[in-house]
Write a protein that binds this DNA or RNA. Structure first.
Lengths: 238, 238
DNA sequence: CGTAACCTTGATTAAGATCAATTCTCGTGG
DNA sequence: CCACGAGAATTGATCTTAATCAAGGTTACG
């Protein structure tokens, strides 16, 4: 694993080469295929993870067997850090279990496992890292708040529209150097998973897609979404 | 404001007397009555707040005028810290506005206003404080995740039951020294606000209360909730 | 090819939102 | 101390959305 790759990870982006060497010494790179479990909500908490490539879903199973996706994690973002900071002592002495399940949802997903103890030691001696972590948490809180708002006061079609718009903007941002002027969004998750993430079920999601399609706003072809009228799409979100 | 009062605030609980003196020099105590605005979502961001007494609701107004309560903040908890850590530079130079509205919802609410710049300076030189802040964020994330889960996969009655149980347990914990064996929960927010917080409307909340009451689980008398069958209440939450 | 996972469609049902009208509660001033 | 009025809470009737149940259709992959 190269320095550059590690520095792409927001959290680690301002560490010195020495610090990165130390990080390299305690982290572990793991590879998964689509459908592979990264951890279950019954396993002892060993530390958090950073996605290096691919995509991971964090989800819970309710009493009656329904699945609810809490979080979708993509490249260079981290997951399962919360327990570590709720109580570092307990996390280190493995008194916790993971608070949810984590599964790779695309092939060749690579994640970095960051064990609790050495990371806490590093962060306690490094304010910059601490502030980065705070920034990460702040962004997650902002995102979650928006998510709650969407779920409580928007209907499913509006939620779908918001998701598409957000993803589209994100994709644009990432590939800006290529200036691909295509208006296509590639869904890298299954529609089942998307439904769960948006707080609904596949049937309803399918009907919502159909409705937005009939209004000439998008066109759905499998996992590709063509954005036909971005102005209308933005209107629908509001 | 006494040292002891400040040390009750989780965030500040491990600061030295010197550090607390510094904190005292830049914070500002403000008093509000029920219904008073603490800030609007249009005002420039000046810093975050800690509730010293009373209760504050954080809420947004959607396009069509509906109110959605994001967060209820009680004694010794903080609010509006997110913007400060999303981007400290921008927060300090007042490029942000508050991300939501904040209103006092009980009389004689007292809050401490913590200006961005001096606080960031303090936290950057104090890892303990940084870690406390991280713990606070971690707890909020956990809480929000649970909230999303409740809203997406529980019906309103179950959400109400969960809220009552959580509040009841909290109240018990706080007044444990008194060992008041009463099974009464006092609601310190209006039912309108509670409905909004639970992602529903007053009418539906009222009917849910009635249903749980008919099952002999609770008895609602104005703002007092008598818990008649805690076992059944716990069952209902699951 | 064949099979399993994924997705879509249709019919029905249930939960909760909306609309409309009372009733309750409590602070204020006569 | 009572009457008034405003805001809060409840109740009822109706309507809308989305979940459920059931059946096909598509796609991907061995």
């Amino acid at each position: 694993m190269q320095y550059q790759e590690l520095r792409n990870i927001f959290l680690l982006s301002e560490l010195s080469s020495e610090e990165l060497d130390s990080v390299k010494s305690f982290v572990k790179l793991k590879k998964f295929n689509k459908g592979d479990m990264i951890f279950f909500d019954t396993e002892p908490y060993l530390g958090f993870y950073v996605v290096i490539d691919g995509m991971v879903k964090i989800y819970k199973i309710s009493r009656d067997g329904r699945e609810h996706i809490i979080h979708l994690v993509d490249k260079y973002n981290s997951f399962a850090e919360v327990p570590l900071f709720e109580n570092a002592e307990k996390a280190i002495s493995k008194e916790f279990v993971y608070p949810a399940n984590a599964m790779a949802i695309v092939d060749d997903t690579q994640v970095l496992q960051i064990p609790s103890k050495p990371f806490i030691e590093l962060i306690e001696s490094n304010t910059k890292l601490c502030m980065k972590m705070l920034t990460g948490f702040a962004k997650r809180l902002r995102h979650l708040n928006m998510h709650v708002e969407n779920i409580t006061l928007k209907d499913v079609s509006k939620r779908v529209a918001s998701f598409i718009l957000t993803e589209y903007v994100n994709q644009k941002k990432k590939s800006s150097s290529f200036q691909n002027k295509n208006e296509i969004l590639y869904l890298n998750i299954s529609k089942n998973d998307l439904a769960s993430y948006l707080g609904t079920i596949p049937e309803t999601l399918s009907r919502s897609f159909k409705k937005i399609q009939e209004d000439e706003i998008i066109e759905v072809k499998g996992k590709n979404i063509y954005i036909k009228n971005i102005r209308k799409l933005k209107e629908l979100c509001a």
